[in-house]
Amino acid sequence: MTAAGAEERFRRLHRETYADLLRFVERRVPADDAEDIVSTVFLTAWRRLGELPEDARPWLFAIAHKTMANRTRSWLRRRALDVRLMSVENTTAPDGAAGTAARIDLERAWRTLSVADREVLALVAFDGLTSEQAATVLNCRRSAFAMRLARARSRLQAALEPAAPAHPRTVKEQQSWTKA
């Protein structure tokens, strides 16, 4: 690839994926930190442009995921990268009280899930990835991701069912982000 060709490809990649990557990162870390992480990912992509697969978006997300996981350890000493939630206070409910109640139920159910379950669900429901792309992000086989997703969906469904027996899973509180 010529230098001009590499630059053109990189700029096109940036144009096509920057917004998606920013959203992917902001779902997991505070907005203040997101731009820095996205820059790190694109710098990596530039340095390894010749290695990027044709479908580069999952590759970029995978680099971002690794970067965030590593930083999370240092900043918060948490044990896992977690998906954030849109706070109730910041949302409007166009469909009224019923919609609000459903959303609260959904959020409650979401919080009962493990960090790992939330991540596999978010990769599909929030980030819009296919199972194959999500498997790339988590560096696992597609079949393994599909199994994890099926289990996570099942646990989410169980947590949403009002007639379900008391759930033995410990409720995990959403941890708040603070600067180290």
Partner: peptide, 23 residues
């Protein structure tokens, strides 16, 4: 970025195996 250093050429990455950040 593009003004600072050249891109690195190489063989395409295997699907599902993201390369490490290495600079």
């Amino acid at each position: 970025v593009v003004a600072g250093s050249p891109a690195v050429s190489g063989s395409p990455a295997r699907s599902g195996s993201p390369a490490r950040s290495g600079s």
